[in-house]
Nucleic acid binder design. Structure first.
Lengths: 96, 96
DNA sequence: TTTGATTTGTCAATATGTGTCAAATGTAAC
DNA sequence: GTTACATTTGACACATATTGACAAATCAAA
């Protein structure tokens, strides 16, 4: 349940960047980006966008994972998770 | 985007109960349940269950609305809302 | 207008989120 | 095994959000 963290770690490693370098770019402490990649902390929406630019991947890809993580976090282990997701989807559909 | 509030107001009115009475049953201030019905505040999960019993409706019905509201709240107006919901759904599916 | 229901605004207490820092641990080269 | 650097961990500080109580304002019916 930490799709984004895994994703951005994979990307960072594929580019041989250090946590220190990414942290500097996001203007946060190295410890924080370490925690984020391991799912212990979350990025803000703005940080996701900054990272997408830095890593040269689409906003949409990372933001979708980021949102999905947030949603799964909201759900926790609710037994009605799937019903809730479906209801939310239906309501959202009517709004678009 | 306040499905649960509307729902529990409708149920309460259909039973001609006063906010005061519902508040007493939930052991919270009347002002609070007023705000909850109008979507200004949220119920806790435990309060939803208590209400379902009190109103004699299924937990599932109210908890699904409750979760859906929480999810839509998490989403806010994210342009990738639908993508995020779908991704979350897919991940959840693989976990069940 | 009085009574009771509901709503609104403000405050306190608590919980959660975001970040720093120092110390601990991991890892590779020497 | 010691050094150098990367990463992780834990404790803390600060800001923001959440939850509830309370008092005052508004609404509605009699």
């Amino acid at each position: 349940m930490n799709s984004l963290g895994e994703k951005i770690r994979t990307i960072r490693e594929s580019k041989s960047l250090l946590l220190r370098q990414v942290a500097a770019h996001l203007e946060i402490d190295t410890a924080l980006i370490s925690k984020i990649e391991r799912g212990e902390r979350k990025l803000t929406r703005e940080q996701v966008i900054k990272l997408a630019k830095f890593y040269n991947v689409s906003d949409e890809e990372l933001l979708t994972l980021w949102l999905s993580d947030k949603l799964l976090d909201t759900i926790e282990n609710d037994p009605f998770a799937m019903q809730g997701l479906n209801k939310a989807k239906n309501i959202l559909k009517t709004l678009l």
